[in-house]
Design a protein around this nucleic acid. Structure first.
Length: 145
DNA sequence: GCCAACGTTGGC
DNA sequence: GCCAACGTTGGC
């Protein structure tokens, strides 16, 4: 089991919209970055991730789960790009802001802090757990245990 | 709205 | 294959 972070501008695709898709989940399409694509290729069904709102909010607002492994992006004609499907698992009761992440020394190595432009990122297990705790999330449930 | 950081493109 | 120019992202 690995952990990830999915970034989206809320006025393009918000966690609210993600939740409306329910158990079936939704393609995480539109990623046009090789690094991000390669991370998606590494994802397995059942992996958990954060749903992060960039630009507006700048906070971790939800927990998601990978429900389909990398497959061609249905919105792409070039054949180069792939995406996974994810579903919403639960809200983060107290969304964890970028400022909070930056203020926490134990999170200084998070990709979110060091490579803020990458839209799909890996998250270390310890980082995932800590952010869950900061957000008031039931850690066991969030981490699939 | 600005601009730094980064990734991609294209001329050579 | 290098690198300058350009476009995009995202924090501020």
């Amino acid at each position: 089991m690995r952990y990830w972070l999915f970034k989206s501008e809320p006025f393009k695709w918000s966690f609210e919209q993600q939740k409306e898709k329910g158990e079936a989940g939704q393609e995480w399409d539109g990623v046009r970055n090789y690094q991000a694509r390669n991370f998606m290729r590494e994802m397995k069904v059942g992996d958990r991730g954060f749903f992060y709102h960039s630009n507006e909010g700048k906070e971790v607002v939800g927990i998601v789960e990978v429900v389909a492994e990398a497959h061609p992006d249905s919105k792409d004609n070039s054949g180069k790009w792939e995406c996974v499907d994810i579903k919403a698992v639960m809200d983060v009761p107290n969304p964890v802001s970028l400022d909070q992440v930056k203020d926490e020394p134990r999170l200084k190595d998070m990709v979110l802090v060091n490579n803020s432009r990458l839209s799909v990122q890996p998250v270390e297990e310890a980082e995932f757990k800590l952010v869950c705790e900061m957000g008031g999330v039931d850690t066991k449930k969030a981490m699939g245990g």
